[in-house]
Design a protein around this nucleic acid. Structure first.
Lengths: 154, 154
DNA sequence: GTAACTGCAAATCCTTTGCACTGGT
DNA sequence: ACCAGTGCAAAGGATTTGCAGTTAC
């Protein structure tokens, strides 16, 4: 967590997000900034309710959070992951990496990212095979592993 | 689709499902048979609403479908796949294969199975790596590929 | 200035639950 | 005959929408 290096990269990412918002003819309102901030602050998987709770204090409407999460998803700033009917969202910027996997613990329900370069590259290789064999085009991949996490294995 | 061979295997699978229901102290009611039948007939990914629609004619309650889909999921007869907040279900028997992947087309929304033995084995190998490196236990894997299907590529 | 955006409340949609009745074993 | 399972209608929860007021550009 080197603070300066990190801040610079966050600033860059935020500029990128801002550009994306404006490119789509949208206004970067106070509320939108606040919502996006939450993703930059936590770097984790948030539900709409999570975001809303984090923004109590700021007198922001739940509908506004819903509306914007939907908009941000549609213009590709964030990405939805649904598990058991619950929708989580994460910044797409952090999936700049070729691909990353999620793991959900059956016991504590925590979702963690698995970001191994080696593994990701292998998955990509496999996708190429699938594309060829099935004559289709793969744009995106969602992988959810389910099991027991380090903590819960005891 | 060799009809006899197929029918025999379906009968076997149904017997297996029946045993699972009874082993859990549940009754194999008319409604439950009807719901399970839909999965055997289509071998595809159904929503609760899909099942309900297919069973209009039979005067079955929507709540009954919800209740039983939930029960079947919990005893492992079917499995849930959620995409964009929509829950689809499929027979777990058909995932007897070590693992199978889903592909959803961005254009027609169709979900298809990808069942390549070679690919599946590779995925399993990768999972072993992940388990070792991250010190966790993987029980299940859900993989959803998103893109353009054969048909929609034009 | 004005069109996009917001908060609020009402509407809508999906899912679960309570209850009196029915049906499987 | 008994208790699990059902249908129905009502409740609950999550998400969307209509609208009058507000704000970013």
């Amino acid at each position: 967590m080197g603070s300066i290096a990190n801040n610079i990269s966050v600033k860059e990412d935020f500029r990128l997000v801002k550009r994306l918002v404006e490119k789509n003819g949208l206004r970067l309102t106070k509320q939108r900034k606040l919502i996006l901030e939450q993703f930059f602050i936590t770097k984790r998987h948030l539900t709409v309710e999570d975001i809303y709770q984090r923004l109590k204090g700021f007198n922001i409407g739940l509908a506004t959070v819903y509306r914007n999460v939907k908009i941000f998803t549609s213009i590709g700033i964030i990405k939805e992951i649904s598990v058991d009917g619950v929708s989580y969202y994460e910044l797409k910027i952090y999936s700049k990496k070729p691909l990353h996997l999620h793991f959900q613990c059956i016991n504590c329900n925590d979702i963690i990212d698995i970001d191994e370069r080696e593994v990701a590259l292998n998955y990509i290789r496999l996708n190429k095979d699938i594309e060829k064999t099935n004559n289709l085009e793969i744009y995106d991949v969602n992988i959810m592993l389910i099991g027991l996490c380090k903590k819960c294995r005891g």
